[in-house]
Every structure is written in C-alpha cells, then in structure tokens.
C-alpha cells in the first residue's frame, strides 16, 4: 500500500458520494484488511481492487471514475458477506461510482453497450430480456407501463440509439 500523510485525506468526494447514497458513509469504517479483495472473482481476472478504490475515494482522488476497473465488478456481493465490518455495501458503492462515471461522460459509450441493445429493446417492447418467453407474452398496456417507468433512463437512450442505427442501415 502506498505511504500517505494526513495531508492526503480529502473528504469532498466522499461527502458527495454520501450525499447521493447515504449508505456510502459506512466505507469510512474500512480497515483495509483485504478480505474483500482475496475473495473477489473480479480481482482474480482484472485489476479490480476494492481496497484501492476505497483508498482513492477517501483521499478525494476522483480519477477512480475514469478507471476501467470499476466496470469489472461482478456484483456478486461476496465482499459484503466476508467484510468484518458491518453495513459496508461495496456493490452499491460500485453502482454509485459507475453512475457518477456515466454522468461525467467517462462511462461506457453506446458502442460498448451494444451487447445490451438487444436486451434493452426486448425489455421495452416485450417486458423480457429473451425472445419467445415461456408462456404468454406481457400485454401491451403493461409494456407501456414499463416504458413510462423507464422515462429518461439510460435504457431509453440505448433503445433510441439502436433504432436510429437501424434506420440508418435501412437508408
């Protein structure tokens, strides 16, 4: 672990994350024991390292939002289970960081989300992520409700971008 001094701590970023999701305040209790990293499936195959991510946040280092690492989390919740401290919710923190990353324009671009395009399309047109669901299809008025719920969500932009792409192809 890098050496640091008291001057390295900066709470601004931490406070912003807590303002957004109150539960994030609990990461202050992290004792850097590393159990989360040792048991993490993403850490086995990538540079994803929860301990380092928490350190960066507590030092106010916003470069974590640009790190591709935060997109490697499996959201398996194992870190939450093995953490010796109570109520540190790493998966939720990661989702929050990804959200901030999106907002700043660092998150995955449309091209990186192409794998989600078909799933998003099916969800907003059939209410499932697969074609030919087992049993009856969701009635259209229920699909309309899903579209209403998802107003202004990124899923709508992915869906819209896919439609634009299709129209361009046709032309």
């Amino acid at each position: 672990m890098d050496k640091y001094t008291d001057a390295d701590w900066n709470w601004d970023f931490f406070k912003e994350l807590v303002d957004d999701v109150d539960e994030n305040k609990n990461i202050i209790a992290c004792i850097s024991c590393g159990k989360c990293v040792g048991d993490c499936p993403a850490s086995k195959i990538s540079n994803f390292n929860i301990r380092k991510i928490i350190q960066k946040i507590l030092r106010g280092d916003r470069s974590v939002l640009k790190d591709s690492d935060i997109w490697f989390c499996f959201l398996c919740e194992r870190c939450k289970r093995v953490c010796p401290k109570e109520n540190i919710n790493i998966p939720l923190l990661i989702l929050n960081l990804r959200n901030e990353s999106f907002k700043k324009g660092y998150g995955p671009k449309y091209n990186d989300l192409t794998k989600y395009v078909e799933m998003s399309e099916r969800f907003l047109t059939n209410g499932t992520v697969l074609d030919n669901p087992l049993g009856k299809e969701l009635p259209q008025d229920r699909v309309d409700e899903l579209n209403e719920i998802c107003n202004f969500a990124r899923i709508k932009y992915v869906f819209k971008a896919s439609k634009n792409k299709k129209q361009k192809k046709k032309k």
């Binding site: 959201l75 989702l95 990804r98 959200n99 999106f102 998150g107 989300l113 989600y116 799933m119 998003s120 969800f123 209410g127 499932t128 992520v129 049993g135 009856k136 969701l138 009635p139 229920r142 699909v143 409700e145 899903l146 719920i149 998802c150 969500a153 990124r154 899923i155 992915v158």
Partner: peptide, 29 residues
C-alpha cells in the same frame, strides 16, 4: 403464474441503465 409480470430488470439496474427508483418501481409493480 402471473401474466402481468415483467422481467425483474436486474440486468439493466446492474449496468446503471435504470435508477434505483425505476428498479424498485418495476419490482413493486
């Protein structure tokens, strides 16, 4: 089985394509 039930939308929430409130609303519906 419930003919009015949609997908749980976990796939989209986990990729930040919907918000917490939208995710909760889909499940609550």
């Amino acid at each position: 089985t419930c003919s009015q039930q949609s997908c749980c939308s976990g796939t989209f929430f986990q990729r930040n394509l919907i918000t917490r409130s939208q995710f909760s609303a889909i499940n609550e519906r």
